[in-house]
Write a protein that binds this DNA or RNA. Structure first.
Lengths: 156, 156
DNA sequence: GACGGATTACTCGGATAGTTCGTGTCCGAGTTTGGTGGG
DNA sequence: CCCACCAAACTCGGACACGAACTATCCGAGTAATCCGTC
């Protein structure tokens, strides 16, 4: 169970977009982190599709946050790239047992499925409770000049 | 981020092993769920390697739980198959930024990494708090004859 | 000097190969069981 | 009748192909800024 690497990139990029405010080209973000530009662009596209970011075409264009940093949770970014489905998927394995009915969905009655979903719900709850603004505040607490330095490095 | 299908199989099998008590051949468990026997065997081997199950060779052999059902948590089974590493892995992306040091590990100072790890910790905590005995109790509450039926189907 | 239009350069966006990990399968090593022959 | 030995069958265990998803990349469509000529 390995999370896509793009999630880490997207989180860092969104944090930077929150500090910059205006649109930043994907290529500049990629250069900032020494990442492959085309692949990072693909991840940013997913953020746009999910409504987390907006894209501005043409010169002086790029990507920017669609909402305020306080309105974007870490869960929003994760879901944008990994999809809305749970990591644990009940395949209705009980339907294949002797006497089981293969046509019904056991995900609501299977105790194992319920326990796994409860655990993932706790994970999602933690991610949903933490916004980009919260993370940004933590960063500022440990490195007060990080926003300024980032803004200077990402604006021409 | 999709969890391996073997996790679901292993959880169901461990629950059944808890009810049967004695060793059950992997082929019989596979037949019970209509699963590919050789592949299920591979997952059960992982459980043995992790110390969750014990294997008994020869006729009348098979797999059985290494500890009591109350001493086996859902997290033990998940870790046995998916590994101990976190789903989110900090690649020290901050080391590639202008002015960053690529040699140091940022996973302890990066606010994003800390938030993601906190969320996974909540997930792990939920899984560690639920044992096979707890799940078995829930199943008995909704289907009191499930242990008897399972034992009858898995013992010759 | 101001305005209109075409050009230009820059941006995103989706379609296209390469590689790793999960899925599925196979056959061999080891052990217990049962039978068999002898004492 | 009891014991030791032997053969056989059954079990797990690791090594071997196949497929899907993630990773990485390219080039084209579209748009805003810019430059130039004209009024």
């Amino acid at each position: 169970m390995r999370m896509s690497q793009g999630v880490e990139w997207a989180l860092h990029c969104c944090l930077n977009l929150a500090w910059v405010g205006g649109p930043v080209p994907g290529a500049r973000l990629a250069g900032f982190y020494s990442l492959p530009p085309a692949y990072l662009n693909k991840q940013l596209q997913a953020l746009v599709r999910a409504g987390v970011c907006e894209s501005v075409p043409g010169p002086r264009g790029g990507f920017r946050l669609a909402r305020g940093p306080a309105e974007v949770s870490l869960l929003d970014v994760v879901v944008a790239l990994e999809g809305r489905e749970d990591a644990f998927r009940c395949t209705s394995i009980l339907g294949a047992t002797p006497g089981g009915d293969p046509t019904v969905d056991h995900s609501g009655s299977c105790a194992i499925s319920l326990s796994m979903r409860a655990a993932e719900l706790a994970w999602r709850r933690e991610l949903a409770a933490r916004s980009l603004a919260d993370v940004a505040a933590d960063v500022v607490r440990s490195a007060p000049d990080a926003p300024r330095r980032t803004r200077a490095a990402l604006t021409p």
